[in-house]
Structure formats: C-alpha cells, structure tokens
Computed example of a mutant assay.
Amino acid sequence: MAEFNPKTVGLGYVALGSTDPARAVAHYRDVLGLTETGSEGGATYLSLCGAHHDIVVTKASEKSFVHQGYQLREDIELAGFARELEAAGFAAQIKSDSQPGVAKLVEMVGPGGVTFQFYKEMARTVSPATPAGIAPLRLGHMAIISPEAAKLFAFYRDVLGFHYTDDIAGLAFFLTCNRDHHVVNLVGLPDSRVHHIAFELRDGGDQVRAADILSRTGNPTLWGPSRHGAGHNLAGYHHDPDKVMIELYTQMDVYLPALGQHEPRPWHGEYPMVPKSWPIEKMSIWATAFDFNIAMG
C-alpha cells in the first residue's frame, strides 16, 4: 500500500458555467441555502460555513465545468508545488488576486482539459446563525466524467498522492486525500463534464427535510435517498437549473489510511471493508425498485 501523504486536504470549491447564472445562483442560494458573498468579473460566489466561496457560477453559452479548487497542506509552498507540477509534465502558473477570497493560487490544466486550482488559505467569515434552505454542512466531493479518466486517476494518485478507495465495475473510480471515502469520483466515458457535486447533510432527518424542500420548490428527487454500495453514503440526487446533478448525502464511509480500510459500520456486509470493485447492481444496496406497483400491493 502506498504511503498516505496527499498534498491536498480537501475539495475547496467548484466553478460552473451557466446559461442562466441568475437562475443557477437562486437555486444554490434559496434552495440549497448557500450565502451569496459577492460578484466580480462576471462570476458570483456562494459560501457554506464561512468560507468565501464553495460554489462559483459564471455566465456561459452552455453548461460547463470551469475549474475546481483544492486546499494544499499547510507545509507546502506554492512556488515549490508549481515546480513539482512542472516536473510531472504540467504547465503551472502562480496567480495573485485572480478571485476574491484567495490571495494567491497555482493553476494548471490536467488530463482531459480539467482545470485545477490549488491554494493555501481562503478568507473566512462567521456563517449565518439561521441559514435558509436545505443548508448542508459542507461541500464534500465531486464526480467528473472524462474520456481521460485513467490519466486523471494517475494524476490524482501519483502527483497529488490520493488513495484509491473503491470502483464501480471498472467504470467509476473513487479517490480520497483525507478520511472521507472519496473526495473525487472519476467516470470514464466519452463526455467531458461534471457528473455531480456533493454536499454533506447533518443526518438522515435532513435527508427527509431536503426532499420536502426540493419537492416544494419544484426540484424533484431523481434517485434515492438510498444507500450506495461504494462509500455506503445515504444519498439523494436532484438537478440544478443547468441539469448539473447535485448529491445530498450522509453517513459516508470513513477511510483509515494506516490500515487501507474503512471504519466498520453496522450496514457493512463484510469485514474488514477494504477497497474493492463493486458491481453496478450495488449502486443501491437496498435494491429499492420504484417500478413496484404499490397501489396494487
């Protein structure tokens, strides 16, 4: 097992291009409950729990994945990290004041044309005492569809130091840089886009509350809530106005890098729970089939 010493501590933010940014911003602000922290250069910034931004929405001719931001370990300096990226074959640029809340960052384009930003610190404020909407705890992870998924996997593992934690039928691969089961999910398909963005909720009760809020605001739940096999997170999915899929989850597996396995949970079907390849049929381990005619019993 490779040493666990990732260069990043977690996913900091995701930037999306929207054909109707005002509508997209309203969804993240009024339905999901993020706080709008400002607009600059055609981009609107939205926050959870006091970070200057977790989601960035910009105007675009079609929905698009603009970039993702990862926070670096405290002991890593930007200049040295940029040199490491260059040595690995990736052109890296240090930018100052390129966006509000982040004084300096390193930007690079990775496999599949995916733009990465890496930063040390982000400006913070006290989060609202009574947040509106669903009000997730935090931005947890994202999933990326790319024809270059294998190369992206190698970049996360070999350059950034992420660990592989599971896959689904050799199609979707999960990696982490902290104790979450996954911080990124890479899906190998011909398309190039965001598969989903995931926000962690407090508990299962918030899943019910979130589903009610989504229904009341005309945002139907597409799948779930149900328990996944890989990661065992209790998850529900809906679309934002640009048809970007949003996951709301709780109870994700906790990764123990020193052991290369996940903390035991009552719903695990085997012990120890180590990284493995899951069949597509275990997308939901509850195997709930909503084509059942409940009216007929």
Rank of each mutant, 00 (worst) to 15 (best):
E3C: 11
F4Y: 13
P6L: 01
K7W: 09
L11F: 13
Y13T: 04
S18A: 09
T19P: 13
P21Q: 10
P21T: 07
A22Y: 14
A24G: 04
H27R: 11
R29G: 03
D30H: 01
L32D: 01
E36N: 12
E36P: 08
T37V: 05
E40T: 03
A43K: 02
A43L: 10
Y45V: 15
S47C: 08
A51F: 06
H53G: 05
K59C: 14
S61R: 13
E62F: 13
F65T: 05
Y70E: 14
L72M: 15
E74V: 15
I76A: 01
I76P: 00
E77L: 09
A79C: 08
G80Q: 00
F81A: 03
A82Q: 01
E86P: 04
G89M: 01
G89R: 07
F90Q: 02
A91N: 15
S96D: 07
S98K: 05
Q99Y: 09
P100D: 01
G101W: 01
V106G: 05
E107M: 07
G113P: 12
G113D: 08
F116T: 02
Y119W: 01
K120D: 04
T125E: 15
T125S: 14
V126C: 12
P136A: 03
L137E: 06
L139V: 15
G140W: 00
I145T: 10
I145S: 07
S146Y: 01
P147M: 08
A150F: 05
L160P: 03
G161Q: 02
N178Q: 06
R179G: 11
L186T: 11
V187Q: 03
L189Y: 11
D191N: 10
D191V: 15
S192P: 15
S192A: 12
I197P: 10
A198S: 14
G204M: 06
D206G: 05
Q207K: 13
R209I: 11
R209H: 08
R209M: 11
A210C: 06
D212K: 12
R216H: 10
R216Q: 14
T217Y: 12
T217E: 02
R227D: 13
R227K: 13
H228Q: 10
H228E: 07
A230Y: 14
G231N: 04
G231I: 15
L234A: 08
L234G: 08
G236C: 09
Y237A: 02
H239R: 04
H239Y: 05
V244C: 13
E247A: 01
L248A: 02
V254A: 05
V254H: 03
P257Q: 11
A258M: 00
L259N: 01
Q261S: 07
Q261W: 12
H262A: 03
W267V: 00
G269S: 12
P272D: 09
K276P: 11
M283W: 07
A287K: 13
A289Q: 10
A295N: 11
M296D: 12
M296T: 05
G297R: 00
